[in-house]
Design a protein around this nucleic acid. Structure first.
Lengths: 118, 118
DNA sequence: TTCTCGTTATGACAGGATTGCATAACGAGA
DNA sequence: TCTCGTTATGCAATCCTGTCATAACGAGAA
């Protein structure tokens, strides 16, 4: 019998054994860049503001670099933008991720292509 | 400043969107093969018997194949051995995993080799 | 000056998932 | 019949994760 098997892959970056950056955080930073707001970005990628905030805090602490410039108050309530360091980091991470999934998928098809019992 | 960053990668197999097999379960099956006992295997890889048992149950249910032959009782209390299907599956998974990590590590070194700010 | 508004910033709590403890069942050999 | 180490499983406790509520903020409008 052949089940509907799929291979999944994931890469992330750790500092001192603690996860610091992965696909989710990448989406978050990208969304902040687009919207200029943590709150809007969180809504966009379907996580709570609380969680987005925790992510950013942890990333900045562990990487030791400032990723997001925030300001509160003002007519529009405030906002947030990416620092240059964040953009640079993001670009590199995108390069790292690129292609990995394709490699994994291809390998999986080669080996498990015919199902569990093939 | 250069932090001690590491890239981590993980691959696993899903059936119907539920995780079925990954590195931990691979270690478990390999240990069962070595020791002829779920209990010993669990001890070896530092998980509780309870957890090992849950893993096996879930794997068998989701993959739809029997992975472990168990027998209870007897002078030595019982034991467990891998089925041929389990060995075959294991071999394939090892092939799948092999090399992936190297590819990821190499890519990481190329891109982040000089540290966060490099 | 005072008020408004949407955002950032956190603490507190709830619900779910995970882990681990306790205990039963088992059966070959002494 | 008794022992022993293993498989098997319910259940309680613990740990995470996500959610809710609420404060602080400050530029511009009134």
């Amino acid at each position: 019998m052949t089940k509907d098997m799929k291979v999944k892959s994931k890469i992330w970056i750790e500092v001192d054994g603690e996860p610091v950056f992965g696909r989710g955080r990448r989406f978050l930073l990208q969304a902040i860049d687009r919207y200029g707001s943590i709150s809007q970005a969180a809504k966009e990628i379907n996580i709570s503001y609380r969680k987005a905030w925790s992510y950013i805090k942890a990333m900045e602490e562990r990487l030791g670099i400032k990723l997001v410039n925030r300001h509160t108050g003002g007519r529009d309530g405030g906002g947030a933008t990416l620092t240059d360091e964040a953009r640079k980091f993001l670009r590199r991470y995108e390069m790292l991720e690129e292609g990995i999934r394709e490699i994994v998928d291809e390998r999986f098809r080669e080996i498990f292509g015919e199902g569990v019992n093939g």
